[in-house]
Amino acid sequence: MGPVAGGRRPPVRIFRWVALSVFSVLLAFPFVWMAITSFKQTSDLYDVENNPFLFNEMPTLEHVELLLGETLFPRWLLNTAFAGTMVVLITLLLAVPAAYALARLTGRWGERLGIAIFLTYLIPPTLLFIPMSRVVSILGLQDSLWSIIVVYPTFTIPFSIWLLMAFFKSIPSELEDAAMVDGLTRFQAFLRLVIPISFSGILTVVIFTFTLVTQEFVYALTFISSASNQTIGVGVPIYLVRGDVYYWGSLMAACLIASLPIAVFYNLFLDRFIAGFTVGAVK
């Protein structure tokens, strides 16, 4: 079998390299495309004779200047960051303990309740739209960033609970027993053991929630009308698409600036997402 296995090896390696290259190109392409478009002159961009992958004319900063100087983009970025952070905090604060309680403490009712919570996630947002606007108006939050900070957790929390429940269930309860014998209360064991071990799950919740805030459109559009209170998800398409005129350069620059930090953040913790984090705990 030796020679056969040895003979198969190089093709396997070549296949891996090919697969890796294809995926790298596929994933890097949107970023490259956004970057090129952001710095291309408009006349270059619209000329179909030109090679779209190259700068056929001198690169320009005019789209970025338009984005930063003539729109409220920096303000939207701040708004998004603020709303995103708040929604992430609210979601974590409610979903983490809820998921733990459902996973551990309520026996078989926990599971049913978990499914019930997940089902609420399946209700289309457009249906919830009218009751939500009543709530927002009763709270007096119309045209305020706080309107979406209140509304978004209603769909981030159920999803996050569901996701975290799976994580908490994969942690053997013997670990918590051991921590309690070793001198912690259940709550301390939750803080010092369960949360660090489920770090990758919590990180997934953070990224899911934050990305949702940056891209959500319907609620942000209806509840907030002033340009200065908008998030990038609404501000950018509204102010950079005027009638049938698309400011492609600026649009792409806006997308690039908004997506790069998330992509970098995600890559920093990539191994955490992939690693089977409880391996080695038992057996």
Partner: peptide, 10 residues
């Protein structure tokens, strides 16, 4: 000491 040892994996 537990059957699975219950070592803290992190």
């Amino acid at each position: 000491v537990f059957q699975s040892y219950a070592l803290y994996p992190h």
